[in-house]
Design a protein around this nucleic acid. Structure first.
Lengths: 138, 138
DNA sequence: TTTTATTGTTAGCAAATACTAACTATATTT
DNA sequence: AAATATAGTTAGTATTTGCTAACAATAAAA
Protein backbone atom coordinates (compact mmCIF):
# COMPACT_ATOMS: atom_id res chain seq x y z
CA UNK A 1 0.00 0.00 0.00
CA UNK A 2 1.48 3.29 -1.14
CA UNK A 3 1.31 6.50 0.85
CA UNK A 4 -0.27 9.72 -0.31
CA UNK A 5 2.85 11.37 -1.71
CA UNK A 6 3.66 8.30 -3.78
CA UNK A 7 0.10 8.18 -5.06
CA UNK A 8 0.16 11.85 -6.01
CA UNK A 9 3.43 11.24 -7.81
CA UNK A 10 1.93 8.36 -9.79
CA UNK A 11 -1.24 10.31 -10.56
CA UNK A 12 0.89 13.18 -11.76
CA UNK A 13 2.83 10.83 -14.04
CA UNK A 14 -0.41 9.30 -15.33
CA UNK A 15 -1.85 12.71 -16.16
CA UNK A 16 1.38 13.84 -17.77
CA UNK A 17 1.58 10.77 -19.95
CA UNK A 18 -2.08 10.97 -20.93
CA UNK A 19 -1.55 14.61 -21.79
CA UNK A 20 1.38 13.56 -24.00
CA UNK A 21 -0.76 11.02 -25.81
CA UNK A 22 -3.48 13.62 -26.36
CA UNK A 23 -0.95 16.07 -27.71
CA UNK A 24 0.22 13.49 -30.21
CA UNK A 25 -3.38 13.06 -31.39
CA UNK A 26 -3.68 16.77 -31.98
CA UNK A 27 -0.27 17.05 -33.57
CA UNK A 28 -1.99 17.20 -36.93
CA UNK A 29 -2.46 20.88 -36.14
CA UNK A 30 1.24 21.60 -36.79
CA UNK A 31 1.64 23.43 -33.50
CA UNK A 32 4.96 23.54 -31.67
CA UNK A 33 5.21 22.97 -27.94
CA UNK A 34 5.76 26.68 -27.42
CA UNK A 35 2.75 27.64 -29.50
CA UNK A 36 0.50 25.32 -27.51
CA UNK A 37 1.80 27.02 -24.39
CA UNK A 38 0.70 30.37 -25.79
CA UNK A 39 -2.80 29.13 -26.60
CA UNK A 40 -3.16 27.58 -23.16
CA UNK A 41 -2.08 30.78 -21.46
CA UNK A 42 -4.48 32.87 -23.54
CA UNK A 43 -7.31 30.54 -22.60
CA UNK A 44 -6.29 30.64 -18.93
CA UNK A 45 -5.99 34.43 -18.83
CA UNK A 46 -9.32 34.84 -20.59
CA UNK A 47 -8.45 37.10 -23.52
CA UNK A 48 -5.41 39.01 -22.25
CA UNK A 49 -3.64 41.80 -24.08
CA UNK A 50 0.00 41.43 -25.20
CA UNK A 51 1.38 42.95 -22.01
CA UNK A 52 -0.54 40.60 -19.74
CA UNK A 53 0.39 37.59 -21.83
CA UNK A 54 4.07 38.56 -21.87
CA UNK A 55 3.99 38.98 -18.11
CA UNK A 56 2.39 35.56 -17.59
CA UNK A 57 4.88 33.84 -19.89
CA UNK A 58 7.81 35.82 -18.47
CA UNK A 59 8.88 36.95 -21.92
CA UNK A 60 9.35 40.39 -23.44
CA UNK A 61 6.57 42.10 -25.34
CA UNK A 62 8.34 42.08 -28.72
CA UNK A 63 8.92 38.34 -28.37
CA UNK A 64 5.27 37.71 -27.62
CA UNK A 65 4.14 40.10 -30.32
CA UNK A 66 6.03 38.19 -32.99
CA UNK A 67 4.74 34.82 -31.78
CA UNK A 68 1.16 36.12 -31.59
CA UNK A 69 1.39 37.55 -35.10
CA UNK A 70 2.26 34.10 -36.41
CA UNK A 71 -0.62 32.51 -34.52
CA UNK A 72 -2.96 35.13 -36.00
CA UNK A 73 -1.52 34.49 -39.44
CA UNK A 74 -2.24 30.77 -38.99
CA UNK A 75 -5.78 31.50 -37.82
CA UNK A 76 -5.47 30.34 -34.21
CA UNK A 77 -6.06 33.82 -32.75
CA UNK A 78 -7.63 37.16 -33.50
CA UNK A 79 -7.47 40.59 -31.89
CA UNK A 80 -10.23 42.87 -30.67
CA UNK A 81 -9.38 46.48 -29.92
CA UNK A 82 -10.15 47.59 -26.40
CA UNK A 83 -12.89 50.19 -25.86
CA UNK A 84 -11.43 51.29 -22.55
CA UNK A 85 -7.86 51.82 -23.69
CA UNK A 86 -7.35 52.68 -27.31
CA UNK A 87 -3.70 51.62 -27.19
CA UNK A 88 -4.62 48.07 -26.32
CA UNK A 89 -6.18 44.98 -27.89
CA UNK A 90 -7.39 41.68 -26.47
CA UNK A 91 -6.46 38.28 -27.82
CA UNK A 92 -9.16 35.72 -28.59
CA UNK A 93 -8.97 32.07 -29.65
CA UNK A 94 -10.56 31.23 -32.99
CA UNK A 95 -12.53 27.99 -33.34
CA UNK A 96 -9.32 26.41 -34.54
CA UNK A 97 -7.50 27.78 -31.50
CA UNK A 98 -10.13 26.36 -29.18
CA UNK A 99 -9.23 22.85 -30.30
CA UNK A 100 -6.45 23.01 -27.72
CA UNK A 101 -9.05 23.06 -24.96
CA UNK A 102 -10.84 20.13 -26.52
CA UNK A 103 -7.55 18.33 -26.24
CA UNK A 104 -7.48 18.90 -22.49
CA UNK A 105 -11.08 17.81 -22.18
CA UNK A 106 -10.20 14.65 -24.02
CA UNK A 107 -7.33 13.94 -21.61
CA UNK A 108 -9.63 14.35 -18.63
CA UNK A 109 -12.15 12.01 -20.15
CA UNK A 110 -9.44 9.39 -20.70
CA UNK A 111 -8.31 9.61 -17.09
CA UNK A 112 -11.87 9.48 -15.80
CA UNK A 113 -12.44 6.34 -17.82
CA UNK A 114 -9.26 4.80 -16.45
CA UNK A 115 -10.53 5.49 -12.93
CA UNK A 116 -14.04 4.13 -13.47
CA UNK A 117 -12.60 0.96 -14.95
CA UNK A 118 -10.92 0.19 -11.62
CA UNK A 119 -13.69 1.00 -9.15
CA UNK A 120 -17.24 -0.23 -8.56
CA UNK A 121 -20.18 2.17 -8.23
CA UNK A 122 -20.01 2.53 -4.48
CA UNK A 123 -16.28 3.21 -4.53
CA UNK A 124 -16.73 5.75 -7.31
CA UNK A 125 -19.31 7.61 -5.24
CA UNK A 126 -16.98 7.72 -2.27
CA UNK A 127 -14.02 8.88 -4.34
CA UNK A 128 -16.04 11.63 -5.98
CA UNK A 129 -17.30 12.82 -2.58
CA UNK A 130 -13.81 12.91 -1.09
CA UNK A 131 -12.24 14.69 -4.04
CA UNK A 132 -15.03 17.25 -4.02
CA UNK A 133 -14.09 17.96 -0.43
CA UNK A 134 -10.41 18.21 -1.33
CA UNK A 135 -11.17 20.75 -4.04
CA UNK A 136 -13.70 22.75 -2.02
CA UNK A 137 -12.99 26.42 -1.50
CA UNK A 138 -12.45 26.79 2.25
CA UNK B 1 -21.36 18.22 -6.30
CA UNK B 2 -19.10 17.93 -9.31
CA UNK B 3 -18.82 14.80 -11.43
CA UNK B 4 -15.65 12.82 -12.02
CA UNK B 5 -14.59 14.50 -15.25
CA UNK B 6 -14.90 17.94 -13.70
CA UNK B 7 -12.92 16.81 -10.68
CA UNK B 8 -10.19 15.35 -12.84
CA UNK B 9 -10.08 18.61 -14.76
CA UNK B 10 -9.65 20.61 -11.57
CA UNK B 11 -7.05 18.22 -10.21
CA UNK B 12 -5.19 18.44 -13.47
CA UNK B 13 -5.22 22.24 -13.29
CA UNK B 14 -4.01 22.15 -9.70
CA UNK B 15 -1.13 19.85 -10.59
CA UNK B 16 -0.29 21.81 -13.69
CA UNK B 17 -0.13 25.07 -11.83
CA UNK B 18 1.97 23.59 -9.06
CA UNK B 19 4.35 22.19 -11.67
CA UNK B 20 4.53 25.60 -13.31
CA UNK B 21 5.66 27.13 -10.05
CA UNK B 22 8.37 24.52 -9.80
CA UNK B 23 9.48 25.10 -13.36
CA UNK B 24 9.75 28.81 -12.75
CA UNK B 25 12.28 28.03 -10.04
CA UNK B 26 14.33 26.12 -12.57
CA UNK B 27 14.00 28.72 -15.24
CA UNK B 28 16.00 30.96 -12.94
CA UNK B 29 18.81 28.41 -13.08
CA UNK B 30 18.90 28.95 -16.86
CA UNK B 31 17.30 25.76 -18.10
CA UNK B 32 14.96 26.12 -21.05
CA UNK B 33 11.61 24.37 -21.25
CA UNK B 34 13.01 22.01 -23.83
CA UNK B 35 16.02 21.15 -21.71
CA UNK B 36 13.77 20.32 -18.77
CA UNK B 37 11.85 18.03 -21.09
CA UNK B 38 15.07 16.21 -21.92
CA UNK B 39 16.00 15.73 -18.26
CA UNK B 40 12.53 14.46 -17.43
CA UNK B 41 12.62 11.98 -20.30
CA UNK B 42 16.06 10.72 -19.31
CA UNK B 43 14.83 10.19 -15.77
CA UNK B 44 11.70 8.44 -17.01
CA UNK B 45 13.60 6.17 -19.39
CA UNK B 46 16.15 5.30 -16.71
CA UNK B 47 19.45 6.09 -18.40
CA UNK B 48 18.64 5.65 -22.08
CA UNK B 49 21.12 5.89 -24.92
CA UNK B 50 20.79 8.60 -27.59
CA UNK B 51 18.72 6.42 -29.90
CA UNK B 52 16.17 5.56 -27.21
CA UNK B 53 15.90 9.17 -26.10
CA UNK B 54 15.44 10.41 -29.67
CA UNK B 55 12.72 7.84 -30.20
CA UNK B 56 10.89 8.88 -27.04
CA UNK B 57 11.08 12.57 -27.89
CA UNK B 58 10.23 11.92 -31.55
CA UNK B 59 13.28 13.81 -32.74
CA UNK B 60 16.22 12.82 -34.91
CA UNK B 61 19.44 11.56 -33.38
CA UNK B 62 21.58 14.51 -34.51
CA UNK B 63 19.10 16.90 -32.90
CA UNK B 64 19.20 15.02 -29.63
CA UNK B 65 22.96 14.60 -29.79
CA UNK B 66 23.50 18.36 -30.00
CA UNK B 67 21.08 19.04 -27.14
CA UNK B 68 22.63 16.35 -24.96
CA UNK B 69 26.13 17.70 -25.61
CA UNK B 70 25.05 21.06 -24.24
CA UNK B 71 23.50 19.48 -21.17
CA UNK B 72 26.73 17.57 -20.58
CA UNK B 73 28.72 20.78 -21.06
CA UNK B 74 26.53 22.47 -18.43
CA UNK B 75 26.97 19.53 -16.05
CA UNK B 76 23.40 18.24 -16.00
CA UNK B 77 24.30 14.92 -17.62
CA UNK B 78 27.16 12.51 -18.14
CA UNK B 79 27.70 9.48 -20.35
CA UNK B 80 28.76 5.98 -19.48
CA UNK B 81 29.91 3.69 -22.26
CA UNK B 82 27.98 0.46 -22.54
CA UNK B 83 29.77 -2.79 -21.80
CA UNK B 84 27.38 -4.79 -23.92
CA UNK B 85 27.55 -2.66 -27.03
CA UNK B 86 30.72 -0.69 -27.59
CA UNK B 87 29.01 1.66 -30.04
CA UNK B 88 26.60 2.85 -27.39
CA UNK B 89 26.58 4.96 -24.22
CA UNK B 90 23.99 5.55 -21.53
CA UNK B 91 22.96 8.96 -20.28
CA UNK B 92 22.92 9.68 -16.56
CA UNK B 93 21.73 12.68 -14.57
CA UNK B 94 24.36 14.40 -12.46
CA UNK B 95 23.47 15.64 -8.97
CA UNK B 96 22.64 18.96 -10.60
CA UNK B 97 20.45 17.19 -13.16
CA UNK B 98 18.65 15.30 -10.41
CA UNK B 99 17.43 18.58 -8.96
CA UNK B 100 14.63 18.40 -11.51
CA UNK B 101 13.29 15.30 -9.80
CA UNK B 102 13.62 16.85 -6.39
CA UNK B 103 11.49 19.69 -7.67
CA UNK B 104 8.84 17.25 -8.81
CA UNK B 105 8.95 15.55 -5.44
CA UNK B 106 8.44 18.90 -3.83
CA UNK B 107 5.33 19.69 -5.87
CA UNK B 108 3.91 16.27 -5.02
CA UNK B 109 4.51 17.01 -1.36
CA UNK B 110 2.71 20.35 -1.71
CA UNK B 111 -0.30 18.72 -3.33
CA UNK B 112 -0.37 15.99 -0.70
CA UNK B 113 -0.37 18.62 2.01
CA UNK B 114 -3.22 20.46 0.31
CA UNK B 115 -5.19 17.22 0.31
CA UNK B 116 -4.50 16.32 3.94
CA UNK B 117 -5.54 19.80 5.01
CA UNK B 118 -9.04 19.15 3.70
CA UNK B 119 -9.67 15.63 4.99
CA UNK B 120 -9.75 13.95 8.40
CA UNK B 121 -7.80 10.79 9.18
CA UNK B 122 -10.56 8.38 8.27
CA UNK B 123 -11.24 10.11 4.97
CA UNK B 124 -7.54 10.16 4.17
CA UNK B 125 -7.36 6.41 4.74
CA UNK B 126 -10.29 5.81 2.43
CA UNK B 127 -8.90 8.09 -0.29
CA UNK B 128 -5.48 6.43 -0.17
CA UNK B 129 -7.09 2.99 -0.40
CA UNK B 130 -9.25 3.96 -3.38
CA UNK B 131 -6.43 5.65 -5.26
CA UNK B 132 -4.20 2.65 -4.67
CA UNK B 133 -6.85 0.56 -6.35
CA UNK B 134 -7.10 3.03 -9.22
CA UNK B 135 -3.36 2.84 -9.78
CA UNK B 136 -3.06 -0.92 -9.36
CA UNK B 137 -1.66 -2.92 -12.25
CA UNK B 138 -4.54 -5.07 -13.47
C1' DT C 1 -0.70 71.66 -20.03
C1' DT C 2 3.47 69.64 -19.88
C1' DT C 3 5.75 65.56 -18.38
C1' DT C 4 5.93 60.83 -17.55
C1' DA C 5 4.30 56.15 -18.12
C1' DT C 6 2.28 52.50 -20.75
C1' DT C 7 0.77 49.72 -24.97
C1' DG C 8 2.04 48.08 -28.92
C1' DT C 9 5.15 48.00 -32.65
C1' DT C 10 9.43 47.63 -35.88
C1' DA C 11 14.13 46.45 -36.82
C1' DG C 12 18.20 43.98 -36.12
C1' DC C 13 20.50 40.42 -33.97
C1' DA C 14 21.81 35.92 -31.27
C1' DA C 15 20.91 31.52 -29.52
C1' DA C 16 18.23 27.38 -29.40
C1' DT C 17 16.05 23.86 -31.83
C1' DA C 18 15.31 21.12 -35.59
C1' DC C 19 16.37 18.90 -40.08
C1' DT C 20 19.08 16.03 -43.96
C1' DA C 21 23.16 13.95 -45.81
C1' DA C 22 27.23 11.72 -45.11
C1' DC C 23 30.54 9.49 -42.27
C1' DT C 24 33.08 6.01 -38.60
C1' DA C 25 32.96 2.22 -35.64
C1' DT C 26 30.87 -1.73 -34.02
C1' DA C 27 27.26 -5.57 -34.35
C1' DT C 28 24.46 -8.70 -36.72
C1' DT C 29 22.98 -11.36 -40.58
C1' DT C 30 23.70 -13.98 -44.58
C1' DA D 1 34.00 -13.51 -44.75
C1' DA D 2 31.12 -10.22 -46.86
C1' DA D 3 27.04 -7.63 -46.70
C1' DT D 4 23.88 -5.20 -44.04
C1' DA D 5 22.21 -2.81 -39.99
C1' DT D 6 22.74 0.10 -36.03
C1' DA D 7 24.81 3.72 -32.62
C1' DG D 8 26.76 7.72 -32.60
C1' DT D 9 28.77 11.60 -34.77
C1' DT D 10 29.92 15.79 -37.90
C1' DA D 11 28.79 19.41 -41.03
C1' DG D 12 25.75 22.47 -43.07
C1' DT D 13 21.37 24.74 -43.05
C1' DA D 14 16.55 26.56 -41.93
C1' DT D 15 13.25 27.96 -38.59
C1' DT D 16 11.78 29.25 -34.16
C1' DT D 17 12.35 31.62 -30.19
C1' DG D 18 14.26 35.00 -27.68
C1' DC D 19 16.55 39.57 -26.76
C1' DT D 20 17.54 44.99 -26.82
C1' DA D 21 16.95 49.52 -28.66
C1' DA D 22 14.14 52.83 -30.50
C1' DC D 23 9.74 54.61 -31.87
C1' DA D 24 4.49 56.33 -32.21
C1' DA D 25 0.08 56.64 -30.07
C1' DT D 26 -2.48 57.02 -26.10
C1' DA D 27 -3.27 57.53 -21.07
C1' DA D 28 -2.19 59.15 -16.49
C1' DA D 29 0.19 62.20 -13.35
C1' DA D 30 2.33 66.55 -12.09
Amino acid sequence: MKNLVEIVSQLSDLMGQTEEVAKEQFHLLNLTHTQMHYLEAIHLLDNPNITELASKLKLTKPTVKVAVDKLIESDYLYKIKSDEDRRSAHLHLTEKGKLINQMHDYTHKLISEAISRKLNNEEMGTLVRLLNKVLSEN
